[in-house]
Protein backbone atom coordinates (compact mmCIF):
# COMPACT_ATOMS: atom_id res chain seq x y z
CA UNK A 1 0.00 0.00 0.00
CA UNK A 2 1.45 3.36 -0.95
CA UNK A 3 0.91 6.73 0.69
CA UNK A 4 -1.81 7.79 -1.72
CA UNK A 5 -3.92 4.73 -0.90
CA UNK A 6 -3.31 5.22 2.79
CA UNK A 7 -4.82 8.68 2.68
CA UNK A 8 -7.64 7.68 0.36
CA UNK A 9 -8.40 4.57 2.39
CA UNK A 10 -9.29 2.71 -0.83
CA UNK A 11 -8.60 -0.92 -1.60
CA UNK A 12 -6.44 -1.47 -4.69
CA UNK A 13 -7.85 -3.41 -7.62
CA UNK A 14 -4.88 -5.16 -9.29
CA UNK A 15 -4.50 -7.84 -6.57
CA UNK A 16 -8.22 -8.59 -6.96
CA UNK A 17 -7.70 -9.05 -10.71
CA UNK A 18 -4.77 -11.39 -10.10
CA UNK A 19 -6.66 -13.54 -7.60
CA UNK A 20 -9.76 -13.77 -9.79
CA UNK A 21 -7.65 -14.83 -12.78
CA UNK A 22 -5.76 -17.45 -10.82
CA UNK A 23 -8.96 -19.10 -9.61
CA UNK A 24 -10.69 -18.89 -12.98
CA UNK A 25 -7.78 -20.19 -15.04
CA UNK A 26 -7.07 -23.10 -12.69
CA UNK A 27 -10.64 -24.21 -13.40
CA UNK A 28 -10.66 -23.49 -17.14
CA UNK A 29 -7.35 -25.25 -17.76
CA UNK A 30 -8.62 -28.45 -16.16
CA UNK A 31 -11.90 -28.40 -18.09
CA UNK A 32 -10.57 -27.37 -21.52
CA UNK A 33 -7.35 -29.36 -21.28
CA UNK A 34 -9.01 -32.66 -20.66
CA UNK A 35 -12.12 -32.35 -22.80
CA UNK A 36 -10.46 -33.62 -25.99
CA UNK A 37 -8.60 -36.43 -24.29
CA UNK A 38 -11.64 -37.53 -22.31
CA UNK A 39 -13.93 -37.61 -25.34
CA UNK A 40 -11.40 -39.74 -27.23
CA UNK A 41 -10.90 -42.08 -24.28
CA UNK A 42 -14.64 -42.43 -23.76
CA UNK A 43 -15.23 -43.39 -27.40
CA UNK A 44 -12.35 -45.86 -27.58
CA UNK A 45 -13.08 -47.51 -24.24
CA UNK A 46 -16.75 -47.82 -25.17
CA UNK A 47 -15.80 -49.46 -28.47
CA UNK A 48 -13.58 -52.01 -26.68
CA UNK A 49 -16.24 -52.87 -24.12
CA UNK A 50 -18.97 -53.11 -26.72
CA UNK A 51 -16.92 -55.72 -28.57
CA UNK A 52 -17.35 -58.10 -25.68
CA UNK A 53 -20.41 -57.15 -23.73
CA UNK A 54 -23.62 -55.39 -24.43
CA UNK A 55 -23.52 -52.17 -22.55
CA UNK A 56 -25.54 -49.00 -22.50
CA UNK A 57 -23.63 -45.85 -23.54
CA UNK A 58 -24.79 -44.05 -20.43
CA UNK A 59 -23.60 -46.89 -18.19
CA UNK A 60 -19.97 -46.04 -18.88
CA UNK A 61 -18.58 -43.14 -16.86
CA UNK A 62 -15.06 -41.86 -17.41
CA UNK A 63 -13.44 -39.35 -15.11
CA UNK A 64 -9.99 -37.85 -15.12
CA UNK A 65 -8.68 -36.23 -11.95
CA UNK A 66 -5.53 -34.24 -12.33
CA UNK A 67 -3.50 -33.97 -9.15
CA UNK A 68 -0.23 -32.15 -8.49
CA UNK A 69 1.93 -35.26 -8.89
CA UNK A 70 -0.43 -38.08 -9.89
CA UNK A 71 -3.54 -38.10 -12.07
CA UNK A 72 -6.16 -40.82 -11.85
CA UNK A 73 -8.33 -42.18 -14.62
CA UNK A 74 -11.56 -43.61 -13.28
CA UNK A 75 -13.63 -45.91 -15.48
CA UNK A 76 -16.98 -46.95 -14.14
CA UNK A 77 -18.90 -49.52 -16.19
CA UNK A 78 -22.29 -50.80 -15.16
CA UNK A 79 -22.48 -54.40 -16.44
CA UNK A 80 -26.01 -55.79 -16.74
CA UNK A 81 -26.70 -59.36 -15.45
CA UNK A 82 -27.17 -60.92 -18.86
CA UNK A 83 -24.36 -59.00 -20.52
CA UNK A 84 -22.08 -61.99 -21.13
CA UNK A 85 -24.81 -63.81 -23.04
CA UNK A 86 -24.81 -61.29 -25.84
CA UNK A 87 -21.12 -61.71 -26.51
CA UNK A 88 -20.62 -61.45 -30.21
CA UNK A 89 -17.37 -62.26 -31.96
CA UNK A 90 -15.92 -60.22 -34.84
CA UNK A 91 -18.41 -58.08 -36.66
CA UNK A 92 -20.29 -56.96 -33.59
CA UNK A 93 -18.04 -54.01 -32.92
CA UNK A 94 -20.74 -51.36 -32.89
CA UNK A 95 -22.46 -50.42 -29.69
CA UNK A 96 -25.33 -52.81 -29.20
CA UNK A 97 -28.85 -51.50 -28.97
CA UNK A 98 -30.75 -52.28 -25.77
CA UNK A 99 -32.74 -55.54 -25.91
Amino acid sequence: MNLLEFFRGKKTTAPVARDRLQVLLAHERSVIGKSDLLATLQEEILAVIARHIKVDRDAVQIKLDRGATVSTLEIDVEVPLNAAKVFRPAGGSGIAAPV
Binding site: N2, L4, E5, T12, A14, P15, R18
Partner: peptide, 9 residues
Protein backbone atom coordinates in the same frame (compact mmCIF):
# COMPACT_ATOMS: atom_id res chain seq x y z
CA UNK B 1 -0.07 2.00 -7.59
CA UNK B 2 -1.70 -1.45 -7.79
CA UNK B 3 -4.27 -0.21 -10.28
CA UNK B 4 -2.98 -2.47 -13.05
CA UNK B 5 -1.71 -6.05 -13.10
CA UNK B 6 2.08 -6.10 -12.83
CA UNK B 7 4.20 -7.86 -15.43
CA UNK B 8 5.21 -10.35 -12.72
CA UNK B 9 1.54 -11.17 -12.10
Amino acid sequence: RNEMLKVED
